[in-house]
């Protein structure tokens, strides 16, 4: 555990909190991609299958991981519920149209072909890593289609990008402090994932410095 990792995890939780806050305060889910949220739910459910077999009391880190894993699954399920049931009428159904097959199928293929160990759980785990790296794409697509989003929604995406950036720093840190740290799947997928936010950040900061709502050209 290092500060980058801890900061990344906390920022990840914070981003979900910001998203829930946006939905609760505005009582609408306009500008939020249900497709991205459902992909995240899929990512968490597949990655954290090990919850079923891990004793959370084995170590402090296991307990920490278990708490976060349950939190991520529960909160993303809750957001999907809010979007599909409670605030259904406000959902940007006409604009949230990115074809997720183009993401799920390649992630399945990548997971099947490139994994650490040839076991069911390792293949599903690798799939979840590849899936997460591109899960934000429907959200970014919706964003550029509508052109403008509420501040809290843009803060949400910014926090997610920040969480990814901190994870990259965590890996750099671990690479130099742990002699046998060789996690190429996380590095490749994580770098792709973080790079996806680059364009968003450019416009985010451009608009923030002007104190405006996020507006894309």
């Amino acid at each position: 555990m290092n500060l980058f990792r801890l900061g990344g995890d906390l920022l990840h939780v914070f981003s979900i909190f910001v998203l829930t806050l946006k939905i609760k305060t505005s009582k609408n889910v306009a500008g939020i991609s249900l497709r991205t949220q459902q992909l995240y739910l899929l990512v968490f459910c597949t990655r954290y299958l090990d919850l079923l077999f891990t004793n959370p009391f084995r170590s402090g880190l296991t307990m920490y991981n278990t708490v976060f894993k349950i939190l991520f699954i529960a909160s993303s399920a809750y957001i999907v519920y809010l979007m599909r049931k409670k605030y259904k009428q406000t959902y940007s159904v006409k604009d949230d149209t990115f074809r997720v097959e183009f993401l799920i199928v390649p992630a399945c293929l990548a997971g099947t072909l490139f994994h650490y160990r040839n076991t069911f759980f390792e293949i599903v785990w690798a799939f979840s890593i590849y899936m997460e790296s591109v899960a934000i794409i429907p959200q970014l697509y919706l964003l550029q289609k509508t052109g403008e989003v509420e501040n809290l929604t843009s803060h949400y995406i910014a926090c997610l990008g920040g969480y990814r950036a901190l994870y990259l720093l965590n890996w750099v840190w671990r690479f130099f402090t742990e002699p046998r740290y060789r996690h190429w799947i996380e590095w490749i997928a994580g770098t792709i994932q973080t790079a996806l936010y680059a364009d968003f950040f450019y416009y985010y900061f451009l608009n923030k410095t002007k104190g405006q709502k996020l507006k894309l050209p």
Binding site: R5, D9, H12, L61, F68, W125, Y167
Partner: peptide, 10 residues
């Protein structure tokens, strides 16, 4: 390499 790789990150 360890027999069972335990993913220690989220």
């Amino acid at each position: 390499r360890r027999q069972l790789r335990i993913h220690d990150e989220l």
